[in-house]
Nucleic acid binder design. Structure first.
Lengths: 237, 237
DNA sequence: GTCTATACCACGATAGAC
DNA sequence: GTCTATCGTGGTATAGAC
């Protein structure tokens, strides 16, 4: 840190971050202009380039500022579960909780970024901007590794590849839920949005995902045909 | 339709559609310029405005051209299942199949739009562009209604609101899978992309979703009895 | 070191010539 | 039907004020 700025100082940088977070959330990355951001933040256009260098590095910082604490909370929650279990496998549902609940917490704390960041995060995952697809995996790597390990112990009959896919589906359901609510009211008959608190949604999401992770295996998972499908046999095409 | 064009005629319109579909898929809507589209289609910049009126109406047509047939196939597959069941409830897994498999088929036929449209569709659902959030529900309304009814009969113990949320999660897992593969290789340890055919992925996805839909209900589906947060403490068995 | 004014080129869109 | 000229706006770069 160099010399302190004299007056309205740090405010500029943070105001830009806050305005960008909100506008990216509302409109997406490409559709949001720096002019909008700087107008909302009430700073000069060139301030973005001075403080961040480019629009790309700005959005980068928007994510890094929030994702670190969120994923740290997830890992520490998993740590507590594992030490409480004394080396034994965890309940699948508990592991899922350790992924979902910290996000719910972030959504509740306005000072921590609030719902804006969650929706931004949910949307970012399907945004085609290349640097996002580069930046997010870097931040998620550790979390994924830890949780994959936990799931593997909790679900010993599932091959590594099948588990990878199921975690993929899990992230899909989660991201869509975070991003969504207003994204599509496809299911229209009930008003989904607003009618449920984030906690209530999480309480619906967690059993869904946990059941999916524990689903009976498809017919043949590689070679080891554990053919004990209790459920539905597929139709011959 | 006015007078027939004399020469390379219809080609222009279709070439624009094809180029736009591909570029929107690769880069998203806002990030794709009309100049890129017209360059790839080898037509003049103004041709887009002549044939479609605006960028917005172009993307609109890109969707409408594909979504109609896809959703029609889903409904006709559901029709067949229901008439085969003679009024009885269907297996949850069969209903899910009727949603997933037509999409897999579209992905296989290059002439029907191929994988490009599927990925575009998966991404579009989380795109914040307002007209997309207006156009997609219109196309999905009928499908959603029919399938919601089928699920409701197959899952009589689940409240309407809970079902709506579970279908929401289902679409999340599906969209993410369609959009994804390359979107995030979060689960990195295994190469997900390419290692599995669309059919193989569908065979993993369907049991996951079906199990989620049939998951045991959360503690109380309506009233809530509980304490919360600060930590982990639900169900410290 | 922090911020502003301003200039630059590419983009989306359109009107009007051909 | 097609193309060119043009307008307003986007991201970015820089020069210089405090």
């Amino acid at each position: 840190m160099p010399t302190l700025p004299n007056r309205s100082l740090r405010a500029t940088r943070d105001r830009i971050l806050a305005a960008a977070e909100r506008l990216f959330m509302e409109q997406g990355y490409s559709a949001t202009s720096l002019r909008e951001i700087t107008a909302k933040a009430r700073v000069n256009l060139a301030a973005v380039n001075y403080h961040f260098g480019s629009k790309e590095r700005l959005v980068r910082e928007v994510f890094e500022r929030r994702l670190g604490p969120l994923n740290a909370a997830r890992i520490s929650m998993l740590d507590r579960l594992e030490s409480a279990a004394n080396g034994g496998p965890l309940k699948v549902e508990s592991i899922v909780e350790a992924i979902v609940m910290p996000a719910v917490q972030v959504g509740r704390e306005p000072v921590a970024g609030g719902a804006a960041f969650l929706r931004l995060l949910g949307r970012a995952i399907s945004e085609p901007a290349s640097f996002l697809r580069e930046i997010l995996p870097a931040h998620y790597r550790e979390v994924i590794g830890r949780f994959k390990q936990a799931f593997a112990r909790a679900l010993p009959d599932i091959s590594e590849q099948e588990l990878a896919w199921r975690m993929h589906f899990m992230f899909g359901a989660m991201s869509y839920t975070l991003a969504g609510n207003d994204a599509l009211q496809l299911i229209g008959t009930c008003r989904l949005e607003g009618s449920d608190s984030p906690e209530a949604i999480a309480r619906r999401l967690i059993p869904f995902v946990a059941a999916g992770l524990q689903a009976p295996l498809p017919e043949s998972d590689s070679k080891r045909t554990r053919k004990h499908v209790g459920g539905i046999s597929r139709k011959a095409a």
